[in-house]
Amino acid sequence: MNIFRLAGDMTHLASVLVLLLKIHTIKSCAGVSLKTQELYVIVFATRYLDIFTSFVSIYNSLMKLIFLGSSFSIVWYMRYHKAVHRTYDREQDTFRHWFLMLPCILLALLIHEKFTFFEVMWTFSLYLEAVAILPQLVLLQRTRNIDNLTGQYIFLLGGYRGFYILNWIYRYFTEPHYVHWITWISGLVQTLLYADFFYYYFLSWKNNKKLQLPA
């Protein structure tokens, strides 16, 4: 494991903690897209199917459990916790899951490294993760008023993707035969989706103003 991969995982972990902090202590999920969170549950559930069959390290298994557990609990809170659910922007969060999932299923069936069940599911999770943030970005655009925790959550998520790209570049030059086009391209697409958000995040940070997206 290199420093970029570790930094990526830690930013990912931090993003989840920020979101849980907002939901658990402030009892609010305002500005958070349930659609995106449900897509993350599907992403982790399909990617970590191998959790009992393949062992890489204690670190990996532990992180898989954390990401599975946290994504499930976030969705549970937003759906079933009365106080949290009341703050959910249901009318604004209208993105259709199938609209994103169907193309990802088809693409995973067509383009994959190996045609096995686990590999196709893994590939599907990569494609779906690439676009899972879209409902969240759409919701931000609609509500426009973004509180600090929600802004930090998305900033950290984008940071995690950025560090993973550095990790792939590092591994490409240091490990023989490390070539994974599917992972790289979907990862790159995912990171690019954050570009616009990052632009306005830095602008608000530079001007020391509250983050607001243009209509």
């Binding site: 393949s54 390290s57 990996n60 992180m63 190996k114 590999e119 035969h177 490390y178 994974h180 992972t183």
Partner: peptide
Amino acid sequence: QDQPQNHDEL
């Protein structure tokens, strides 16, 4: 080890 290497990532 017939697993693709990227499966050691999260």
